[in-house]
């Protein structure tokens, strides 16, 4: 990834006495911290803010095609959000808060806005590449929402997305949800979404495609039985993979039998909640290492649910499995 492609992530740089910068309001945060640290005084802060705000005149002029010098407060805030999003994109792409602050102070707002647009176009390009990778690694069968996300929603987003006047907006939100929801907005959100989705898809690709297909089919059927929408497909697979590692360390399976689930529930129930968490996390460490941090975050969210389910003998509601006599990991 080049430096612009990194946009949207949170590098660990610190600025002005190690104060952390708010990356969702990068330019404003830089100004705030520069003032707090005494790097600039109140008058310079006001001057910088004035410079940024005056740039809104250029945006309004461009947006109204020169027909109006004023807009409603609502529209002004919308345009201001997009304009700041662009400027932030450029400043973050510099990957150095001090350098970013100097650029903010020394360069014209037109330059900052335009360079932000260039940075965002690179992010759009990354999204195209990520979409391609996701399609290449798509889950066998998938679900309606999953397939629509890959085949329709992302394309609809890129068609409707307006870098200049709506960079901060999400004109289309993918209907399929990843296990961890991106918290940002605009195209950066889509990039994070596609990055998360790829981590999920690649995880699933580590396992036998027939087993994955069966787990997915089970989830689809269960959703139909419960008359609910099919949720995320990777999370049940992750749960099953961990339980398989608990039962059979080192054997890469995701498909459990009903007996496997009953056995797992019985064995886990021997432990206290804290011990159970340790045992489950130990099983987790035996999963494929790629995108480990992402899977760890997801699984940490899942652990308490699994512990609760074991205690209340409802583990089977969290796992996909083959009914009795239909085979499973223990039979392989």
């Amino acid at each position: 990834m080049n430096e612009i492609q990194q946009f949207g992530m949170r590098p660990d740089e610190k600025i002005f006495d190690g104060v952390r910068i708010n990356y969702s309001e990068y330019a404003l945060s830089l100004i705030r911290e520069a003032t707090k640290s005494g790097y600039i005084d109140d008058a310079e802060e006001a001057e910088l803010k004035n410079k940024i705000f005056n740039g809104l005149a250029m945006v309004i002029d461009e947006y109204t095609e020169g027909k109006s010098t004023s807009v409603s407060n609502e529209k002004a805030n919308d345009l201001l959000s997009s304009y700041l999003y662009n400027i932030d994109a450029y400043l973050i792409s510099l990957k150095d808060p001090m350098k970013a602050f100097c650029e903010l102070r020394d360069k014209t707002v037109t330059y900052l806005y335009d360079e932000g647009g260039v940075a965002l176009k690179h992010v759009m390009t990354d999204c195209t590449a990520l979409l391609f990778m996701n399609k290449k690694n798509r889950l066998p069968g998938g679900s309606e929402l999953y397939n629509r996300a890959l085949d329709e929603d992302i394309r609809a987003f890129t068609r409707a997305y307006n870098i200049r006047f709506g960079a901060h907006r999400n004109p289309v939100v993918p209907r399929y949800k990843t296990a961890l929801s991106p918290r940002s907005s605009g195209v950066v959100r889509i990039k994070k979404y596609l990055t998360n989705l790829l981590a999920e898809n690649l995880f699933c690709r580590c396992y036998d495609s027939d087993e994955v297909k069966t787990v997915i089919a089970f989830e689809v059927l269960r959703a139909q039985d419960m008359e609910s929408a099919v949720g995320n497909l990777y999370v049940p697979l992750l749960r099953c993979a961990v339980i398989c590692q608990f039962l059979m360390p080192g054997v890469p399976h995701v498909l459990l039998s009903e007996d496997d689930v009953i056995n797992a529930e019985g064995l886990l129930d021997e432990y206290s909640p804290d011990e159970m968490k340790t045992v489950l996390m130990a099983a987790f460490t035996r999963l494929p290492e790629e995108n480990r941090e992402y899977h760890k975050k997801v699984f940490e969210n899942e652990v308490s649910g699994i512990i609760h389910a074991v205690k209340f003998k409802t583990l089977r509601t969290l796992l996909a499995y083959l009914p009795k006599n239909a085979g499973g990991a223990a039979n392989n």
């Binding site: 005056n54 809104l56 005149a57 010098t69 004023s70 807009v71 407060n73 002004a76």
Partner: peptide, 14 residues
Amino acid sequence: ALAENERIEVGVGA
């Protein structure tokens, strides 16, 4: 007048 009409105008404007 801008505030009353809930509008923003940057620069000297109209």
